[in-house]
Amino acid sequence: MQNKNRNTLLFSLLTLSLLLLLVLNISLGSVSIPIKDVFNSLTGGNSSKETWDYIIVNYRLPKAITAVLVGMGLAISGLLMQTLFRNPLAGPDVLGLSSGASLGVATVILGAGFLPPFLASFLLSSYGIILASSLGSFLVLLAVLSVSQSLKNTMAILIVGLMFGSLTNAIVGTLTYLSTAEQLQKFTFWSLGNLGNLAWSSIVILLVCIIIGLFMSLLNIKSLNALLLGENYARSMGMNYKKTRLIIILATSILTGSITAFAGPIAFIGLAVPHIAKLVFQTSNHTILFWSTLLLGAIILLICDSISQLPGSDVTLPINAVTSLFGAPIVIWLLLRKRKMMN
């Protein structure tokens, strides 16, 4: 009972901070907009200046929504991977999906010189890059899935995913070595992650992908709880292991694949947020973990994005640098406080 009250309190706190951070995130940036005006603009009214309305609707709001979607999607894929592989170090990257996306983008950006000009200019547009990265992660997914069908051991799938990752990284490395400085710069910018620059139409596509991925994960909450006792116990309690594994891998791929395509490979969130959720809520029950990971994922990426704006200055840090710089020490600190949990 005491736990129930504590959880209700925590969930209300998290929801409240998510809403506050959303408003705060929108108000921060190279042009600082007062929170009161942000609030007016969001609730359908007008802010004091027309330019502010324009900035909020066309730039700040899409970016904040992207941050929320990306944070939720990556955090949930991390949770799915950690439970499926029963490995606290697993994250969405372990299946090699981000590397696949990198390979797609690298091929397009760095190989564009060899293509006829009209094709090259299409591929280098933002749609071309999204297409390339989706295709890249999808191909790696197909490879991992086809291998996993003939592998009984889940740990082997983990290793296969890591191997695909190294393989694609090696090809990306070779491509960058052969490319010009200008191409390299473009690729580096993509690989640092970017939550802005998404048009409303792209956000709708991202939203649909995230909803599908989250819904598939939601359907597996019971199986995820069974997996806490390991594969064999889960089977003995009536779980269809192969089917569950397939759905979990598919859900992760949809989430990570779409996010990497639209926002670049964003590090750390998928690995760290589930741990933070487990430490805050002191539970392994996925009915609670699902929602807490979802909220915390959105909150943490919003915080990281707000920091990356470097309030009061014109400079914007790459989001990937912020997630790692601020995230890694937090996880280390949390784990030192609660050593027991990782065993």
Binding site: M237, T283, S284, M341
Partner: peptide, 20 residues
């Protein structure tokens, strides 16, 4: 076999038996 690391309490562990 050894159980994977998790935060399960004894009560929750026993409760998993009701899954079917």
């Amino acid at each position: 076999e050894k159980l994977p690391p998790s935060n399960l309490t004894v009560w929750e562990l026993v409760a998993l038996g009701r899954q079917p």
